[in-house]
Design a protein around this nucleic acid. Sequence first.
DNA 1: CATCGTCTTGTGACCGATAACATCATGGAA
DNA 2: TTCCATGATGTTATCGGTCACAAGACGATG
Lengths: 345, 345
Amino acid sequence: MGTTKKAVSIWDVAKHAGVSHQTVSRVVNGSPRVAATTREKVLAAIEELDYRPNRLARTLAGGAAQSVTVLTADTSLYGAEASLRGIEKAARAAGWSVSISVLDPEETHSDKDIMARLPRAGEPVIIIAHDEPGMRAEKVLTAVQPQAMIAIGRYAYGQTEDPPLLLGLDDGEAGAEATRYLLGLGHETVHHLAIPTSLGNAEGGRAHRADGWARALREAGRPVPEMIPTGWTIAEAFESVQPLVRDRSVTAILCGNDDLALATLRAAHLAGRRVPGDLSIVGFDNAPFAEYTTPALTTVNQDFENVGMSAFELLRHRLDPSIPKPDPAWGLPELVIRETSGPPD
Amino acid sequence: MGTTKKAVSIWDVAKHAGVSHQTVSRVVNGSPRVAATTREKVLAAIEELDYRPNRLARTLAGGAAQSVTVLTADTSLYGAEASLRGIEKAARAAGWSVSISVLDPEETHSDKDIMARLPRAGEPVIIIAHDEPGMRAEKVLTAVQPQAMIAIGRYAYGQTEDPPLLLGLDDGEAGAEATRYLLGLGHETVHHLAIPTSLGNAEGGRAHRADGWARALREAGRPVPEMIPTGWTIAEAFESVQPLVRDRSVTAILCGNDDLALATLRAAHLAGRRVPGDLSIVGFDNAPFAEYTTPALTTVNQDFENVGMSAFELLRHRLDPSIPKPDPAWGLPELVIRETSGPPD
DNA sequence: CATCGTCTTGTGACCGATAACATCATGGAA
DNA sequence: TTCCATGATGTTATCGGTCACAAGACGATG
């Protein structure tokens, strides 16, 4: 019946192969100090018994870490989901396991809340969260285990070294580029529908999408309209953007991500404004659906998956410096011009 | 500097409180057989030292499991992502940790590949994958640890008991309902753009979306057009659906999910067919963006998040029968009529 | 031929918890 | 008063590994 057979351990293999458990451990971990013939015997035994090492025991005993915990924003956000996907992919390739824990944007997490998410003290962590709870987690973990933590943030690779170690895309410049593009099209100014991230003041010189937007506007000598803050959901954005969409003097809106852009597109349509004739809309992130909306969304492509993969590799390097430090592998943010942007009529 | 202090263990607490480590263990696990005064002392020590139990050690020592591994399809699919979100939410509430491992649809996984994803023998698993690799994983794990596994599939709750334990939404009936709705609108027949899942033959009486579609058509005495198979990505769907969209005799298309529906909507637009005047399109899943496309997508709402939460609760129950068996908590699939469907002109 | 370093393998402690069993009071029943 | 069930706590083994160190075999060196 449902009798789960007892798992085979390193001792079983040792007995079967006629060696000590330590020798089995050496073979499993690829130690060079094992005679070829012995190795053969052990490998045969492993094969025969279908032995599979227990990662918990391995980690507990002080072996090298083989798991990461990812503290992330709600995975229904494209950016978080894609970064997580990259981390998982790299981790799986390396034979590591990845745990996830979602940081609730509504909740204020105490230090304890955050630490309680880790399965053990010293567990390696990657934080994917650009908003309040993420920054809080970053702060807490930096204090406790700076060497076993990476945060995916807004800094370009290598810009900051050592705790807190951030890694990410240059949102600021991308925001500026998109804004310049719209101005170049002939728009008087550009309005901004902002994701929650951008609400906090940029700490420690971090460059936000919204910062880049404001900077580009100032550099062009244009007025900087009041930024419209909104939430993470499409529904919230749809509500927030109503005044903007109804104001006929508004001809261009830069949105904090593609979900917001979709909401704006919909709101514009319902308000009877033609896109891009009456109103240009530019998104951020280049989510998979962006290419298939009607009209197709102009947006800024972000290479989240590669950032995620690099975050994992970088963490590994920090945990074990004998593993080479990865080169930054992701592409720069890039404006993808499609159909929602054009010169004002 | 980055000196990670040694973690405080149960022994440290014991020493600090002047009791044995076992007593500390009792307090931590809420055993009733501890004098109130002792409990106080121990709790104080825990607080003071900021002790946090090591889950790895706990599991290794044979304590109750506190982690699940989720084997899932690519999380960029809405259904998988939402189910995962539900699992994580329920798990977090229960103080468990969640590991994820993605099953690559391209790859044929051997039994070993699948087992290698588990951190230890007997690790509780939830499988979210309705396609080939998922079914394979289900088969492998059912053979090894039927009691510590739940698969999220297409069966209604309670329909099958015991290994393999499936749990899910009644896709078949939902597919039939959507089809009947379209026929009721006056369409001669309904075409189907199918997700990969539906390609395999329905094993063991599982009801697919595509099955329900075909059934409804037959019951209405209509011809069942050839099903158009496609991949999981919007881009693939966009290509696959071209012939259908160009065929002016086609007036209604039921799509396997909302991504495919979006691709179809776009393709129809580019082919110069008005939606819903010339062509009705119905999706599946009610992804967040579905309400905000133009025209807004008619689709079948699926309560993935609650299915995920229930899967977790059910797994817990199976692992420890003293935990009550959860009631099925999710809503039935429900047709959401929006703007992409209507009578043929 | 004795000594020593190297290669190979084994032994025992330990990681941080739980489980099973032993021990010691304490208080009510006989 | 004696006995014993019961409650509170301690002791030891164990989970499945790794680590540090010891020990045996062997060829090279002086």
